[in-house]
Write a protein that binds this DNA or RNA. Structure first.
Lengths: 235, 235
DNA sequence: TAGAATATCTACTCATGAGTATGATCGAGC
DNA sequence: GCTCGATCATACTCATGAGTAGATATTCTA
């Protein structure tokens, strides 16, 4: 009860003190604000949004609730910030591939790799699970818009792949749903099973998306008869 | 305020009254219990578990909260029942394909089709989103066990497909995660976008899983150069 | 038709958690 | 040393919602 504020924030006010103390203060504040967001993300990851109280978050930072409120306006705002932190890398991925000279499929795969890594990141859960039901109409609209932007971006890359022949015939909408869904779902199991790095997972997924389950070429149409066991006379 | 209990349950006590009234009562009770579960599922679908109060559920049934508690023990039990109702068709799908003489991939695809339809069903959301964090340790264990059973079932079918040559080289674990994830995610968007039936969605997904994005055969390695636009001199 | 189940309601308790009013403290500049 | 603004804590308010106690209605049985 008396060991509080042991390490609320690194408080690294070392070098670069040349600027006005005002500036330093402001930076300090920003650093702490981000620490609050990050702590919230971790707590949401661990216990879920609704099972996390602001007291929990405060406790994790070794401060009290009013201190948290000093940096963020309310709980849903906190979730919203986590969401933004989560989607930003994905939007960056889209921007990045825009300038790339490659087929639609290649650019799509690049985006999906970043997407997968983002979902497995610290903010992945919040991004994937930020629900309109938990947010005010205004924020809900904002989040929906961002989600839609990403969805449309994926569909566009798919269409471009269809046009340049790098992607085989498919429905862009359903395909986008399937790809994004598989990646989003990573947030559900990655906490428990961290046997692979986010990059490895993303790579494995993209490989599957590209090639599908069917064996390429060769033995495709003729499964080795010797292994066709399981004939079971059950009925 | 005085029009309550308009239609709490069909109350079909018509024929088959031959049995003892005891039996009739019991059936009645069971019917109503299922109506409660169903109402809960609908409410959870619509507003999410945490944003749904038992008063909401009661109101939807045009009864009061104690009446709901007369049929179920508590809120988490309600979620658990919804979960069970959601997974049962999937377990049935596994049982069904067990007796089927087909390649691993064919059996896997059959299961995935049922899986997709189950996720798009009334209980899909509850099944997919029942979180351990919201449940007591005992129920959490139970749900985890069922989820694991399904996961292992998918992996097994994948391994069998690998063995009989109907599935190309892949990591069963990651592949199972990707497939299940894509399908689970249907629950997130199906409420808003019902332009396709669950069966159509499942079919589209399975087609994608099987074939992948790359075009089969033919023009695969050589995208039509004429369409390779987008050379953009941005950097 | 009395009485026993069965089914439902009214009117609570109680805990939790979001958000706040108010005051203490601390560091910087004068 | 004093003041002022930034920061943080104590100690609340207040609404919501899970779950219950006990009364009441309804239906079946004897």
């Amino acid at each position: 009860m008396n060991s509080r504020r042991a390490s609320a924030a690194p408080q690294a006010k070392s070098a670069a003190a040349s600027a006005s103390p005002w500036r330093a203060r402001r930076r300090d504040r920003e650093v702490k604000r981000e620490a609050v967001i990050r702590a919230a993300a971790r707590a949401f990851n661990h216990k879920g949004y609704h099972n996390t109280s602001l007291d929990d978050i405060a406790a994790a930072l070794e401060v009290t609730k009013p201190t948290v409120y000093y940096y963020v306006t309310n709980k849903e705002h906190l979730l919203f910030q986590c969401f933004l932190a989560g989607v930003e890398p994905i939007r960056a991925a889209f921007r990045e591939v825009k300038d790339r000279q490659a087929t639609g499929r290649e650019r799509l795969s690049a985006v999906l790799r970043h997407y997968g890594e983002a979902v497995a990141s610290e903010f992945g859960w919040c991004m994937v699970r930020a629900e309109d039901q938990d947010l005010s109409p205004a924020m809900s609209r904002h989040i929906k818009a961002l989600k839609s932007e990403i969805d449309q971006g994926i569909r566009r890359l798919i269409r471009e792949g269809l046009e340049d022949g790098s992607i085989g015939s498919c429905d862009p909408k359903m395909t986008a749903f399937a790809l994004a869904g598989a990646l989003n779902w990573i947030a559900h199991w990655y906490r428990e099973d961290q046997s692979l790095t986010p990059a490895e997972i993303a790579a494995a997924f993209v490989t599957l998306f590209e090639g599908g389950l069917q064996p390429r070429s060769a033995s495709q149409a003729a499964p080795r008869a010797s292994l066709r066991r399981r004939v079971r006379i059950a009925r």
